[in-house]
Simulated scan of single mutants.
Amino acid sequence: MKRRTACNAMLLVMAALSSRMPRAQVVGRPARLAFLVEPALEAPLQQAIVKALLEGLRALGYVEGRNFSIEFRSADGNFSRLPTMAEELLRQRPDVLVTAWPASAMAAKEATRTVPVVAVSVDNPVAMGLAQSFSRPGGNITGIGSWALEIVAKRLQVLREFVPTARRVGILFNPDAVGPGGLEPALTNWQKGLGLAIHPYPARGPTDFDGAFAAMVRDGIGGLLVFADSNTYTHRVLLNQMCLQRRMPSVWGGRDFMTGGALASYQSDFPDMFRRSAALIGKILKGAKPGEVPFEQSSKLELVIDAKAARALGVVVPPALLLSADHVIE
């Protein structure tokens, strides 16, 4: 009787421990994947991230409908909906939850400590609390980082090359999408590196845009950096129009944000990252623990210049930037 009680107790302990660990290897059935994203999955994103992910999986022998299924959820640009979307996906009992961009990754982090998560295109995963280190994440999350503060500094350099006479530049951002600590520490470093004043302009949506641009005029802003987040993506057409109407040179965080009013974009190559993320998913489906799968860093950056927008804004594109551009829109 004592032996049976001890065995039962041991089984209960093992069950409790296993419930806290990421799921094991998928054998004998199609794998179940889930995908969480904040912006609406419109055609540009379908092409840039969904198609790229499926291509990467196909290259590894995973064919949708044959040996895996995938369930999508989008918060349609509404940050507050992400926790609900994450819970909906987790009720489907996925083997791996894939997230796109920082807000979705943070929602997944809060929603589960057991389901393996592959977080794609996040900022610094250690600073965000997604991982203990790049080489050994330690929890249920691994993924691909896309450079955060470093790439913003590079965008500011590109902006300065476009408008070398500007004494002040602005940053348009959604305060809800900025991590703990806000922008102030980074602003200090960027201003030192750039040698000119940088003014932040918070905007949570279209009702804030007119006020932000009016403030830029009052402050004598000569160029604008537009942060890449769900807010600016959802309203990219309006913001591009406002940049044209106000003759505001602007640099953005992704080519899909450019609709005719943006001068340039400098960003990690999104299709490359999502294609590469398939390898991380494959490792987990074969039994690897995400906490032991190193976080990767995006290795391919893309500079896109809209020469047509430059002409409309009366901006001369420096020859050096033209030569270094990966793509020029004519």
Rank of each mutant, 00 (worst) to 15 (best):
A15P: 01
F274N: 01
G222K: 11
Q25K: 14
K286P: 00
D229N: 12
A278G: 03
F79C: 00
Q132H: 11
I171P: 06
D123Q: 09
V163C: 13
S133A: 11
V178T: 14
N78G: 01
I221Y: 05
S298I: 06
P318S: 15
L17K: 08
G181T: 06
A288G: 00
L321K: 08
G253N: 06
A9I: 13
I141C: 03
A9F: 10
M216T: 15
L17S: 08
L239W: 08
T5D: 06
V50R: 13
A24Q: 08
R311G: 11
L280H: 01
R255D: 06
G253A: 09
A131E: 10
L11G: 09
W190G: 06
G65I: 10
V315E: 02
L41T: 02
F134D: 01
P22L: 02
P30E: 12
L82G: 10
R204V: 05
R167H: 13
L323R: 14
Q47T: 14
F227C: 06
V96R: 04
V163F: 10
M248Q: 13
R23D: 04
R275T: 09
F257C: 00
F295Q: 04
K289T: 14
V26A: 05
G193D: 07
R29T: 11
H235E: 07
A215Q: 14
E292K: 11
T99G: 03
L301K: 15
G77P: 00
K283W: 00
V37S: 04
W190Q: 12
G254C: 06
L183T: 08
P125H: 10
L130P: 02
I305C: 12
L224F: 08
G139D: 02
V251E: 05
T165Y: 01
L194E: 14
A103T: 00
F213I: 09
I144M: 03
N231G: 07
M21I: 07
D269Q: 12
F274G: 01
A86F: 03
R73S: 10
A24M: 06
F173K: 02
P30S: 11
G181C: 04
T112N: 02
A31G: 15
T5E: 08
A228K: 06
D76L: 04
A212C: 13
P200R: 07
V237N: 08
L33S: 12
F35G: 10
A288K: 01
E42W: 02
V27W: 04
L45T: 00
A148F: 09
T234A: 13
A40T: 08
L130A: 12
A16N: 07
D95F: 03
E296Y: 12
Q241W: 06
I141Q: 03
P200Q: 06
P175D: 12
T188I: 08
T234S: 11
C243G: 13
P175Y: 13
F270M: 15
M216S: 11
C7V: 09
G61C: 15
A214Q: 12
W252H: 09
T112L: 00
A186Q: 06
E150I: 05
A148C: 08
D95K: 02
W252Q: 00
S121Y: 10
R167N: 12
G28T: 09
P271N: 14
L196A: 07
N140F: 02
V63M: 14
P94F: 04
A24E: 10
L187R: 11
Q267T: 09
E87I: 00
D76R: 04
D176P: 07
